[in-house]
């Protein structure tokens, strides 16, 4: 890692609702380096999408509020700067693509119109230049048919629309691309194409990607480093080789076990028992304790810290501490 593009430090984002405060993001710290692809993995409702929206400054306020922490991007704290400055960064230096390509394009405007609009909001360029740029970018994402600029979104398939969305996000060559489950809504074959495309763009333009997904298969294919979130907290963070070979946190291990393997001959697929805790009533100790198969007394009492199990491998579990302590006492 040469240079950090994005650095989130101890981000606390709360939603103030009538039922009480929901700590949607609770002390998340992560870094994305230049040209790096970082995966943010977790179940629905674990706070991964909220984190990404917080980076974009798109959390509705109220009820949402960044209570503490910072989001450093290129020397600016995105939680502190004004809406106006934030707007200048959005779509230009940080771009985002969404889960649903079917509904992420405005149905009333042509593809060309929408692509050109992005350029013309941020740069002073003529219509012809913007049009040229749009065509170039569409070629980059693998659409070479010129007539597409005059097509309406409803005339395109889901895969095509996601390509258009990616082109739109890449129009101004952003330093960071946030992809919020960009392939979840697509067919498997199209998924592979889109992932390939994103990998190529990542190489060619050195765009860093924060890849949000719940699909471990996608993560294995795409990401250099992986951050696993559970109930608003990071539970494990390491590079992809170590995560898949040697997952440390019981939750990550559970996720790995939930992937069906073809050589396995069992009647029922494995799933982690229990449910994600209700955000209004978080467990007192470790948030994963009620579902954890290795749960100890201490887990129900206090919350473990995110500690380095080894160089570049963080995990939030008392098991490691104990192992360490045992190791420390034995030597």
């Amino acid at each position: 890692m040469t240079q950090t593009v994005l650095e989130i430090a101890d981000l606390q984002l709360h939603f103030f609702t009538d039922k009480g405060v929901v700590k949607a993001v609770d002390g998340v710290s992560l870094e994305v380096g230049r040209g790096e692809v970082v995966g943010l993995v977790g179940e629905s409702g674990c706070g991964k999408s909220v984190t990404s929206l917080a980076i974009m400054g798109l959390i509705p306020q109220p009820p949402g509020k960044v209570v503490a922490g910072s989001i450093q991007f290129e020397g600016m704290d995105l939680t502190k700067i004004s809406q106006k400055e934030l707007r200048r960064i959005r779509g230009d230096q940080v771009a985002m693509i969404f889960q649903e390509p079917m509904t992420s394009l405005n149905p009333l405007f042509t593809v060309g119109n929408q692509l050109m609009e992005v350029v013309r909001i941020h740069r002073k360029v003529s219509k012809e230049e913007a049009r040229k740029k749009a065509l170039e970018m569409l070629q980059q994402v693998g659409i070479s048919r010129e007539g597409i600029l005059d097509d309406y979104p409803h005339q395109l398939s889901g895969g095509m629309r996601q390509r258009v969305m990616i082109a739109m996000a890449m129009m101004l060559n952003p330093k960071l691309l946030i992809a919020d489950e960009p392939t979840t809504a697509l067919d498997v074959t199209i998924q592979a194409q889109i992932l390939d495309l994103m990998k190529n763009l990542n190489k060619e333009f050195e765009t860093s990607i924060l890849f949000i997904t719940h699909d471990l298969g996608v993560v294995a294919e795409m990401c250099d480093r992986i951050v696993v979130m559970y109930a608003g907290q990071i539970v494990e963070q390491t590079d992809r080789f170590r995560l898949f070979r040697n997952p440390k946190h019981p939750y990550t291990q559970g996720l790995m076990n939930s992937i069906p393997k073809i050589e396995d001959k069992r009647d029922r697929l494995y799933s982690i028992p229990g449910q994600v805790p209700n955000p209004h009533q978080m467990p007192r100790g470790c948030r994963f304790a009620p579902r954890c198969e290795y749960v100890m007394d201490i887990c129900r009492e206090s919350s473990p810290d995110l500690i380095a199990v080894e160089e570049g491998h963080l995990s939030r579990c008392f098991l490691h501490q104990e192992v360490k302590e045992v190791a420390a006492t034995s030597t």
């Binding site: 707007r87 779509g91 509904t103 969305m165 739109m168």
Partner: peptide
């Protein structure tokens, strides 16, 4: 609350636009 409005925001558009 449509996705394309969120997308428009993510592209850096002003409220009025």
């Amino acid at each position: 609350s449509e996705d394309y409005i969120l997308a428009a925001r993510a592209m850096g558009m002003k409220n009025r636009r």
